[in-house]
Amino acid sequence: MDRRIAIDTDVCIGAGQCVLTAPETFTQDDDGFSEVLPDANPRSPRVTLAIQACPVGAISVREEG
């Protein structure tokens, strides 16, 4: 099964904790909201840390397939 990192854009407040925790996985768009980089590894331990660091719980990893 494949995993996919998801950011709930309705919940994200642009705090940037994910970018600080896992800059190889996350970036912020022009409005300051988080985005997942194209080559992001959803199995990275830093993704788990970023999920925990998000103050509003906007990040998740979902199983697909």
Rank of each mutant, 00 (worst) to 15 (best):
I13M: 15
A6I: 13
G16I: 07
T25K: 03
R43H: 05
F33P: 13
D8H: 08
R62Y: 06
V11P: 01
M1E: 08
T25C: 12
L37M: 14
Q52D: 13
P55G: 06
L20I: 12
V11G: 00
E24W: 10
Q17G: 14
N41L: 00
G14C: 09
A53K: 04
D29R: 02
D10P: 05
T21F: 09
A50P: 11
S60G: 13
L37P: 07
F26C: 06
E63Q: 13
D29W: 08
I13T: 15
V36A: 06
V61I: 10
I51S: 02
G16C: 05
A6M: 08
P45F: 07
A50I: 04
D10A: 14
T21K: 10
T9I: 08
A15V: 03
T27K: 14
T25L: 05
L37I: 14
L20M: 13
G57W: 09
E64N: 03
G32H: 08
I51Q: 06
P42V: 00
D29M: 11
A50F: 00
E24H: 14
G32K: 04
Q52Y: 00
A22R: 07
E35C: 14
I7K: 00
I7Y: 00
S60A: 15
I5S: 00
E35L: 14
E24D: 15
M1G: 10
R62H: 12
L49E: 15
R62V: 15
F33V: 09
D10K: 09
D31A: 13
G57D: 14
C18K: 00
V47R: 12
I13V: 15
V19I: 12
G57N: 10
A6H: 08
T25A: 05
A58E: 03
A50V: 09
T27Q: 14
C54I: 09
C54T: 07
A53R: 12
N41F: 01
A58N: 06
V56C: 12
I59T: 08
V11Q: 11
R4L: 12
F26I: 05
L49A: 15
N41W: 01
Q52I: 07
E35P: 09
P38S: 00
E63Y: 11
T9S: 12
A6Y: 09
S34K: 09
C12P: 05
L37G: 04
A6D: 09
A40V: 04
P38A: 05
T9H: 13
A58S: 12
C18H: 02
V36W: 08
R46T: 15
D8R: 10
C12S: 04
